[in-house]
Amino acid sequence: MSALGRLKSWEGLLLALLVIIVAVNIEHSPYYLGVGNIVNLFQLSIEKIIVALIMTLVIINGEIDLSVASVMGLAACVLAWLFEMGTPMPLAIVGGLLAGLAAGLFNGFWVAYVGLPSLAVTLAGLIGYRGIARILVEDHPIGNFPEWFNLVGQQPLIGPVTVSIVIFALLFVIIAITLHSSALGRLVYVIGNNLQAARYSGIRVRLVKMTLFGASGTIAALAGILYAARLGSVRGDMAAGFELDIITIVLLGGVSIFGGSGNLAGVGLSILVILNLRNGMGLASITGNTQTSVIGALLILSVLVPNMAQTISNKWNGRET
């Protein structure tokens, strides 16, 4: 089978892996299929999978945003700092979202207009935004938020489904339509496939990249605010390390680290695989460090397997000719 065929069947492999994981979880835990556990399966990682949706577009576009977890923490800390200063919570929420938008546009400026690699720019952002967050809240947690705000992150909205899960579902539909059925989505693929050809074709590459990084910062800020609502308090180290899981979800979903290929269906299956895998390990009392190691191994495999398939295909095709 060619590399293209392997990549096209990636969703099938993910589906088979998901079935195996679910079967093992059912076998090992009588609580796995409970409604409460299924909701918790999503709720405990809801902020990560929200950010993974926009990260899909960024990586398909040929870029990466390592700063998303720090932007989540920054937005939550801006919100908490403004609230502690006496700002009404609705305005504090707006402030947190604007902080995320500003961080995203700042990243986008250096990538789109200055031409710096997004890996370097967002790695600097990962450090810098986290530093600002720590300065704002110093060493003490900030809490005592209004009850209605805490309920947004904790209270079921429709049956057992929370507001965060509803937001995720809406964003999934919106981003799926954007990526697969809109002019912007086509431009995202074209630029990710061949940046220079896109420029020579008259595509406004800078605007597309600025739009994606601005959206990445805003959605990361939204996820950070939802995380603050779920926890009921804010610390400077909030969401630290989340970027590993987020990027793993996207790459495991079949999105090429080099850009230009991938789809949201694969990312959706990847979300289910990782959430069920983490949930099963949690029910089996496997420690958090071991869980992180497993996710790290998945990240490595998600990068290596498609590239190995491509290399083998190239050698095979060369031999045939």
Rank of each mutant, 00 (worst) to 15 (best):
R6C: 02
L7R: 15
W10H: 09
E11M: 07
L13M: 08
L15T: 03
A16D: 03
A16I: 14
V19G: 13
V22T: 10
N25Y: 02
I26E: 03
Y32R: 06
V39I: 14
N40P: 01
L41G: 02
E47W: 10
I50C: 11
A52D: 08
M55G: 01
E63W: 04
D65S: 10
L66W: 09
L74A: 05
A75K: 04
E84W: 10
G86A: 12
G96A: 02
A99Y: 01
G100S: 01
G100A: 03
L101V: 06
L116K: 13
P117N: 12
S118R: 11
L119D: 12
L123P: 05
L126D: 00
G128C: 03
I132C: 00
N144R: 13
F149Q: 05
F149C: 06
V161G: 00
V161E: 00
A169K: 04
V173I: 15
I174N: 06
S181K: 15
A197V: 12
S201G: 14
I203G: 06
L207S: 13
V208G: 02
V208K: 00
T211H: 05
T211I: 11
A215E: 01
S216Q: 04
T218M: 12
I219Q: 04
A220D: 07
A223S: 12
I225Q: 00
L231G: 03
D237R: 04
D237G: 10
F242T: 00
I247G: 03
T248D: 06
I249W: 04
V250R: 05
L252I: 07
L252W: 05
V255D: 04
S261A: 14
S261Q: 11
G268Y: 00
I271H: 03
V273P: 06
I274F: 12
R278N: 15
N279K: 05
N279W: 00
L283V: 02
A284M: 14
S293R: 05
V294H: 14
I295L: 07
A297C: 12
A297S: 11
L298A: 08
I300K: 13
I300Y: 10
I300M: 15
S302Q: 08
V303P: 07
T311H: 12
T311K: 15
